[in-house]
Design a protein around this nucleic acid. Structure first.
Lengths: 218, 218
DNA sequence: AAATAAAATTAGGTGAGACTAATTTTATTT
DNA sequence: AAATAAAATTAGTCTCACCTAATTTTATTT
């Protein structure tokens, strides 16, 4: 059985591995988790014994096939719960991460799959990150933003890149949620501002920064 | 902050207190949790320090006002999650308890209330136990069974008293679920068998024992 | 009331997962 | 290459939540 801490280490290593193809050192893990490097060394030994990672001073930490599988399933659970919290319980973008951090550790053979089905097999979580499928496969991180839409183009909001409360409150004010349709009316070449129409309503102008923070589906 | 173990002890004490107005001894707690009495003594000290219980050799363990409040909220979360697992994720009656046992410990100020709302403020969990409201109040344990219905009476299944797989499989076979309408056609006085009509379909005969295992709403 | 049984408690120990402080190894400067 | 800085590791400690074994207290029999 894999413990809560072990799961958190695995997830952390997985994230570091995805972020950059860099070598994963004990210090990097320690910093990422806010733990002491000494604790990390202990855990590296434990995870190595369980064959979830390999550690080599030259190559750093690497996930084994099993470790990758386990980590992927933790990420799957995390992202599915995030969708649940946002869509079903009406939480805001900035509240869901910490709760999902706890929910992801609930262990039951069929829970993730049932939740997945209940949610309609979502492809992406509310931050634009792809949700691994039951078989471990997943799409690429969502990256098309409103700023990539061609003039006249129509799109639909799928997630946000920026989850600061400033941005989320601004979205609230503009009436933009997940699923909201947006049409790009004009791109101002001077500063790349965007004139948009939200759900067919009157035109509004938003900044380039705004456009780059909104992940969309064309 | 209250730890996972502390929560489990509180819940256990709460259950023992509800079950019977008896004195709650360390041994009773130990047996109920499958722990050693020595461990229970340790925890009694800890919970006493936190002002969640009072302990007196004569009176046994008692919950303080705060302890009662906390325990009630754990029970609330447990029962709400049970409803969620059964109604939304299509789990069976016998699978939900253990998962809810984990979910109940997820700590977030508004989670229970949001879940409650999402589920439509259910009064009872799938075992017929009342779900404490946000203010801590709760109805009495559900106790009306199919055997209490008068001849000709109509009712609706709200929960089961018996959760053995034999009974649940039998229900499955008869097409009975939560919400199913049942009319009592006749009560056979010889052995108290019940002739019923499930959702208006043809008549079927079930035993007294069966009738007493089905909790209903008239 | 004395003997016995049961329950409660204390004392000391274990493993998980964190820590600090000290030391060793590796990398980077000068 | 030697000096210095940074990273990794070891050694020992702490808390939590459990344990066993021994002892004390309380209750029940005879």
């Amino acid at each position: 059985m894999i413990t809560l801490s072990e799961e958190n280490y695995l997830k952390c290593i997985y994230r570091l591995w995805q972020d950059k193809g860099q070598k994963i050192t004990p210090t990097a893990i320690a910093e990422s988790l806010g733990n002491n490097p000494a604790s990390v060394v202990d855990m590296i030994r434990k995870l190595t014994d369980k064959q979830l990672i390999n550690y080599d001073k030259k190559k750093g930490v690497e996930l084994t096939a099993q470790g990758q599988k386990d980590a992927t399933m933790i990420v799957r659970r995390h992202r599915l719960w995030e969708v649940f919290l946002l869509e079903k319980l009406d939480y805001h973008w900035d509240e869901i991460h910490d709760i999902a951090e706890e929910l992801e550790h609930i262990k039951d053979a069929t829970l993730a799959d049932r939740l997945d089905k209940f949610l309609g097999f979502p492809e992406y979580d509310p931050h634009g990150d792809p949700i691994p499928k039951a078989n471990g496969k997943m799409a690429k991180r969502y990256s098309t933003t409103l700023a990539d839409v061609k003039t006249g183009g129509q799109c639909r909001v799928v997630a946000v890149k920026d989850t600061t409360s400033q941005f989320l409150q601004y979205l609230q004010k503009l009436g933009i949620n997940i699923g909201t349709k947006i049409q790009l009316i004009e791109k101002i070449s001077f500063d790349n501002s965007l004139v948009i129409s939200i759900d067919g309503a009157e035109h509004k102008t938003v900044s380039q920064k705004f456009g780059e923070s909104l992940l969309i589906d064309m």
